[in-house]
């Protein structure tokens, strides 16, 4: 039930606090009340109709460097 899928924000509706997102080619309207910082073009994780997290490029880079550290035995 805690499944979440990545989606790209296509447009934002500030009145209803929703966004149209692209989920693997499918268009879907989701809530953005938990991620008010999203912008058009942001990547988000969507769970049960709400965007629950914004995927920051910098954080994704951090994740990869953590993997490299793990391989080197530094973590």
């Amino acid at each position: 039930m805690c499944l979440a899928v990545p989606a790209k924000v296509v447009s934002i509706d500030n009145e209803f606090i929703t966004a149209e997102v692209d989920i693997m080619g499918n268009s879907k309207r989701v809530g953005i009340v938990l991620t008010p910082e999203v912008e058009v073009g942001s990547w988000v994780m969507v769970h049960a109709g709400q965007a629950i997290s914004v995927i920051e490029e910098e954080a994704a880079r951090l994740s990869l460097s953590a993997w490299e550290e793990l391989l080197r035995g530094e973590q």
């Binding site: 805690c2 009340v33 049960a48 629950i52």
Partner: peptide, 11 residues
């Protein structure tokens, strides 16, 4: 659902 789902219900 757990904490992932509960905020949507609260909203």
């Amino acid at each position: 659902g757990f904490e992932t789902t509960a905020p949507s219900t609260a909203y």
